[in-house]
Every structure is written in structure tokens, then in C-alpha cells.
Design a binder for these strands. Structure first.
Lengths: 357, 357
DNA sequence: TTGAAAGCGGTACCAA
DNA sequence: TTGGTACCGCTTTCAA
């Protein structure tokens, strides 16, 4: 049967559809009695508003600014693709996406945000580096009435509306558990991260250290190396690290910057001797997983992050839904045996269905 | 700016919107020349049809029958929830869901489908057991013009439009890889499944055996035990299995029917001696993972399966999009360290954002 | 406080 | 082959 419309309600009560609309939305200037009658009848008929009609009439348009870094394109490109996918899935809404790019996390971001102060965005997505640096800027933007959503990492004490990221603590914990089950002899492990001022990076390390202490007391942990996402620096650090005797039994690379580390291992001929857990997935990493040279990579599902973040922002902006403040996606553990399920999407875009939801 | 509408195209060419509509849709009775002019102008203006207006006008309604078993509710209930979620996300479409329940996989399904032969569904979702049994029934339904989508398992040589399931072969392969990295001493492994006539179950076993042979030549494999999803049978089989000396070094339970097996292990006091990999996640399983008594469970993401399946079916029915014939979701590997990310959803519903997409 | 009516963009029907 | 127009359900403005 045809679902009931406001017309049906109006007819049943012999009033006009205008009055029904006002009553349903609790607008001013409706007598309490008719209001009650309308609400009751709507309930009784099982009235559900027709969203197509509503959005056709309202014809909302929304402008969103997206601030992501250029570096680590293997992560941020699929993140952008996820944002686009979410935008096009929103039927009946005119979503304008303005992509802005700064050089790298915690570098050039403030300047770019300042440049764009004149833009009138309804909301922005931003990948924050150091929360202490970017927090005040986000607060200022938020105070202008712009909805701010953090993606990929977080700036917890800022006025951001919400944040979407992979569960960093769990990523670290998983790495620790995998090492603890794989490495039997006593020794030490190393970690290479981006910058510990980035919340996501610090959180991974905390998860790693905490779980290592509990599950693998035979493995000790070196202080984390900060590669600042720079390949050359990571390479030098890894080379220095591997020159020690005895060498570490495992290395956890907690950002996508793993290739230089693997190159260092190759040169020192230490594959097999040193277990590696990497982060994220991109073409150059595939052969290392296929050949068993690395134990696993922890996939942060950038596409899903971008899609989730924009969906949440649009639902807030358009429907007034209060968003979950903190959304943390479960990272996928990619091993040799399930690698194939994820490689198809390196060229493509959508990990929501086939690898994700 | 306001996006261009058919009116803008009509105005620019000094023709009527009716003609524009016909030209855009390649309907009959439009002169090739005007057709070309319209298409060119649409392209030039960047015309995108307003979906809200379209669905308001068309006001489509769609009836979907959903045939799932009652047994293994921990799996099929979230599957149903995912279906409902997908339905309510489709704005501007009146989707009627008719849930039908048969006793268990490959039991009572044919009778139920026959009973419903009079129902006029636009499409159905069905969890197939034995493809040889259900295939002809699905073919018959499909021949009546009903779109048939298989969920959770598949009936590959039937006339189903598409199939959505967890990647069974990868599940088995992952289990094999985890065992191969965890169990060092030589011995044998056992597997308990539902029925090998169910494609999903057989496929898991194939993935398991194939990868075990390659990565763990020190581990041999017993013939699979078929518990037919019956707890008592699984318990008896596990008890018998564990009475042998030497006992198996690991057991892969490839369906949700793992609790009886764990009970048998408990009684034989073999936790720690025998590694276990389970399938799916439900409340009773949580303490076993928390305490480290089982190595991992392979989560088939039922919610995401249901959501994906209905989305795909509706897109086909409403937009005529040719669906991916085969969709295989990547199973989540749940360990002690990432268990928390999934338990929140045992009570709730949506694993798309926080655990999935 | 309420009623009446215009109009959002697209589709489909009838008339020309 | 084309033009003109009613209508889908809702929101909003203007009048009463």
C-alpha cells in the first residue's frame, strides 16, 4: 500500500496540509489541541516523511573544505576517494567538495587554514598533526560556526565536532600480540613511527608497549624512532638500528613509511632474522607480504575512514544528527593468506563492500 | 551555484522540457538531430539528474523476500539487521521487507520457498545450503522474473543474480597461516565444519588444506568432521577427537558452532595443548578469547553482508545497475588484542563504520 | 491560528 | 516528432 502523506493526515482531520506541517515540526502558531490531534493521527497512520520530497523542496547545498597533506599519498588518496564516494551517495543534496593540500602533517597546515579564513565552508575535514599546534586554529574555525571533523588522527582537546580514525591503540596491541606469538626467543624489538606529537602515532606506540609488557615479557622495547615520514631519515635510522649486535628480533613500522626500512633489511640480509610488521597497504609493499618477508601489515582502511567521516559530517549538517564524537575503525590484519582480498583495491577505490563494512 | 536542470537545457535550446527528457533517456520519437543537440548541451552544462525529484515522481515501491534459517541466530540476526539498515538508508524508495524463516540450512528451505510461490516479490535474499537441492528452486523463482541474491553462502550454477558472502577460501587460508606461525612441533590438526555440501563450508576447508600444505608441512590434517550445526553432535565429535593419543595440536572450527568444542576441550583439560581457531563472534565466545584460550576467531561480518546484499539488490532493481556477480568480504581476524573493537556490536547492530567498511 | 497555493525537478500523458 | 501540463510530497509564503 501507499504510505501515508501529510495530505492523508490533513484529510482525516479535515484541516489543511499547511497546518499539519506546522504541527509536525512543532513550529510556532499552532494551537496545542490541533497539534496534539495531528501528532496522534500521524502516529496512528504510521506517517513517515518522504525524504525525496523534502530534499527536493529544500534543495540544500553544502560546502565542505577538505584539508589533507600531500605526503603519504598511498594513504591520503584513498581517503579522498572515500570522501568523494560519500558525497555522491547523498542523493538530493548538492555537496560541494573543496580539496586543499598542505605539504605534510604538521607542516603548512596552519598557513593553509589561515589563507582560507575567508572561505565560507559549512564544515571541514582535516588531518591534524600536532594537536597543540593545530588545536587553536580549529577552535577558531569552529567558533565561526563551521563544523570541524578530524580524520586519520585527532586533536582531542579542541572544539572539533567529531573524529574518525583507525583504532591506533588496537593497531599497536595487535602488532604486539602477533610478535608475541611468533617470536619465541628473548631479545628486543624496535619501532619506527612518524612523530610522537601526532596523537595517532603515540597511541599506536602505547598500545604496542602495553601489550608487549603483558604478553611477551621476553621481549624488550627500544625507544621509538621518529622518521617524520621522511624516507631518507627512516632508511638511515633503520640502517643504524640493524648495525647493532645483537640485532632486534622485530620491527614495528607504525606508519606507511616502511619501504626504506625494508630496503635496509634487504641490504643487511636480515630477512627472516628480523620480523617486520608494517602499516597500510600500497603496491610496493605487496611483494614483501607475498614472499613472507614481512609478517603482517595493519591496514587502516583509509577509504572507509574518508567515507565514514563525510557521511557523519553531512548527517550532522543536513539532518542535525548528533554524531558519535569518536569513531575508531578496526584495522584489517593483512597476512600473506588474505592479501589478495585487498590488492584489488590498490588500483580501485572502494573498500567498503569487499574489504570492509 | 545552482546545478543545471532539464529546464535550463530546454531554455538554452528553445525547446520543451518534454523533448529534453525524451532525448536524455533515448526514448523513441526524438529526431536524431535534436537528440544530439540536447546531449551536447547537457554535457556542456554538466547536467546531473536530480535524484530526489526523480524518485519523488516515480515513487517506486519494492517488495523483497528474505529467506534465512533460524539456527545460528548469532550470525543470521545481525545479517537481518544489516538488511534493515540498507533498506532504511534508501531514501525516497518504499522498500517492503518480508522476513521468512526456515529451520536450518538445507532443511525446510525448499518447502518455504514453495509455500511462497504465490507472493509477488521483486527480489529475494536467500541463504543457500546445498546448492544441488536449492538450485532448481532458485532457477524457477528467477524464471518468474524475480531477482535472486544468495547471501552467506552461494549456489554458483543457479540463475541467481549475485552472491554476497565472506571470503570462505581466505578464511581457511588465514586459519592455516595462523596455525603455521604458532604451532612449531610436528603433529596433526582437525577441522569441524557444518556440512561439506554447503559451498561456504567446503571452500573454507579447501583454503585451509591448501595453505597448510604449503606453509606448514610439519602439520598433517585429519578428514573434516561435519557437525551439521548441531551442538550435541559437535560435542561428541570433539570429545572423541580429543580422546586419541596423541591429541591434535590444533582445531579449526569453521562455523559458529564452536562452543561445544570448547566445552570438550575444557573437560579434557587441553587448553594450551590444543590451539583453537573459531568462526564468528557472539557473547559466549568472548571469555575464551579474552583469556587466550583460543588463538583467534574469524569474523564473517554478518551485518556488513546483509547491508551489502540488499544495497546491491536495490541498486539493481531501482537503477538497473548490473551488480557484481560475486562479492566476497574480507573476514576480520579477531585476536585478544582487538577483541574490544568488536564486542560493542554484539548488543548493537552496525559494524559498517566502527568495525567494517 | 489556519487555509490556500506556488514551486522544487523530473516523468509521462495528451494534444498538436 | 514536439509542446504543454499535471502531478509526486513537502515547505513556505501570503491571506484570511
Amino acid at each position: 500500500m501507499k504510505p501515508p502523506s501529510i495530505k492523508d493526515i490533513a484529510q482525516a482531520l479535515s484541516i489543511s496540509i499547511g497546518t499539519v506541517d506546522r504541527a509536525l515540526h512543532g513550529r510556532s502558531d499552532v494551537s496545542p489541541s490541533t497539534r496534539a490531534r495531528v501528532l496522534k493521527k500521524a502516529e496512528q497512520l504510521g506517517y513517515r516523511p518522504n525524504l525525496a520530497a523534502r530534499s527536493l523542496k529544500l534543495n540544500r547545498r553544502v560546502r565542505i573544505g577538505i584539508y589533507f597533506p600531500r605526503d603519504i599519498a598511498s594513504f591520503f588518496d584513498p581517503l579522498r576517494a572515500g570522501v568523494r564516494a560519500a558525497a555522491s551517495a547523498f542523493t538530493g543534496v548538492n555537496v560541494e567538495l573543496v580539496f586543499r593540500t598542505f605539504p605534510r602533517l604538521d607542516e603548512g597546515d596552519l598557513e593553509l587554514l589561515a589563507t582560507d579564513a575567508g572561505e565560507k565552508f559549512d564544515g571541514i575535514l582535516v588531518a591534524p598533526g600536532n594537536p597543540d599546534h593545530i588545536g587553536p586554529a580549529l577552535n577558531q574555525i569552529a567558533s565561526r560556526g563551521v563544523a570541524v571533523v578530524c580524520v586519520a588522527s585527532d586533536a582531542p582537546r579542541s572544539e572539533r565536532l567529531a573524529s574518525v580514525a583507525a583504532h591506533a591503540h588496537a593497531s599497536g596491541a595487535i602488532a604486539a600480540e602477533l610478535f608475541s606469538r611468533t617470536i619465541r626467543k628473548p631479545g628486543y624489538l624496535a619501532t619506527i613511527t612518524g612523530e610522537l606529537t601526532t596523537l595517532d602515532h603515540a597511541e599506536k606506540l602505547r598500545g604496542f608497549a602495553a601489550n608487549l609488557a603483558v604478553f611477551a615479557p621476553h621481549l624488550s622495547l627500544l625507544p621509538a624512532l621518529e622518521s617524520k615520514e621522511q624516507p631518507e631519515l627512516a632508511y638511515r635510522q633503520a640502517t643504524a638500528l640493524l648495525s647493532h649486535t645483537p640485532h632486534p628480533l622485530g620491527i614495528y613500522v607504525s606508519t606507511a613509511n616502511s619501504i626504506p626500512v625494508l630496503r635496509a633489511l634487504e641490504e643487511k640480509n636480515l630477512f627472516g632474522e628480523v620480523q617486520v610488521i608494517a602499516t597500510d597497504l600500497f603496491l610496493e609493499l605487496v611483494p614483501y607480504i607475498e614472499s613472507g618477508k614481512i609478517l603482517a601489515t595493519l591496514y587502516q582502511r583509509p577509504f572507509a575512514q574518508g567515507k565514514t567521516a563525510l557521511e557523519l559530517l553531512l548527517r550532522h549538517l543536513l539532518n542535525g544528527e548528533p554524531p558519535d564524537t569518536i569513531t575508531r575503525l578496526a584495522p584489517h590484519i593483512i597476512l600473506r593468506s588474505n592479501l589478495d582480498l585487498f590488492t584489488g583495491y590498490l588500483a580501485e577505490v572502494d573498500d567498503t563492500a569487499n574489504t570492509g563494512a
